[in-house]
């Protein structure tokens, strides 16, 4: 779901860069204030795991493939701002070093998958009653993947409307909402189940390890 360069019009990515820059600046302050030396190794390890997970692409019906992100798990364990900044770091490295996802589309990728994914996952986790924590973590993983897919489908589907030539031919991404919404939402609704299950596994593992190392 990392959108490459050439798919998003400047009318969209330039304002998004402004919005993302503001959120990155605020997020850096929040992380600088809240992150302590005890949680830093955990955040580093899970950010690295999130990066590695993005390379595990699952083939889906229709010949496409999608991958999990781990953003929901990061949000549940560390809060939305840490998750957003960690995910943004991953997207920057992928875009600048490896060409996975574009530089012009970086703010859309970061805002959708990083910010909205983290905020929605954390919100769902927080409103779930204490005794249903496992379900809350599962739903956090699911929503943290599905909602960004919805935003990206809307952003892609809007391209033919906001950027086209005099004859109406799209200049960037050529497909409208009727195609992008089902193409992204159906696979990610299914993949979200995998992301939710993975979040529960990761959450249980980290909680167990945290207790163990605290006792040591």
């Amino acid at each position: 779901m990392h959108i490459p360069d050439g798919f998003i019009a400047p009318q969209m990515y330039l304002p998004l860069y402004g919005l993302a820059a503001g959120l990155w600046a605020y997020g850096a302050r929040r992380v600088g204030r809240d992150l302590d030396e005890a949680s830093l190794p955990w955040l580093a390890s899970l950010t690295a795991a999130s990066f590695a997970l993005s390379f595990v692409a699952l083939p889906l019906p229709g010949g496409t493939s999608a991958h999990v992100t781990g953003v929901g798990l990061l949000a549940v364990l560390f809060g939305p701002w840490h998750a957003f900044m960690a995910a943004s770091m991953v997207f920057v490295i992928q875009a600048l070093l490896f060409g996975d996802g574009g530089v012009t589309t970086l703010p859309l990728n970061a805002l959708a998958m990083g910010f909205v994914g983290a905020i929605s996952a954390y919100g769902v986790y927080r409103v779930t009653p204490e005794r249903w924590r496992v379900i809350g973590v599962f739903l956090a993983g699911w929503i943290g993947l599905f909602l960004p897919a919805l935003l990206i489908a809307l952003a892609l589907g809007a391209q033919p409307l906001i950027a086209h030539d005099a004859a109406g031919v799209p200049l960037y991404f050529p497909f409208g909402f009727a195609i992008t919404l089902p193409a992204l939402l159906i696979p990610h609704a299914l993949l979200g189940i995998g992301e939710g299950a993975l979040s529960v596994l990761g959450w249980r593992l980290v909680e167990r390890l945290r207790v163990r190392y605290r006792n040591d």
Partner: peptide, 12 residues
């Protein structure tokens, strides 16, 4: 070369 799938994957 510009390749685009309907779900937003692609290369340019």
């Amino acid at each position: 070369i510009k390749a685009i799938s309907e779900d937003g994957h692609g290369l340019d």
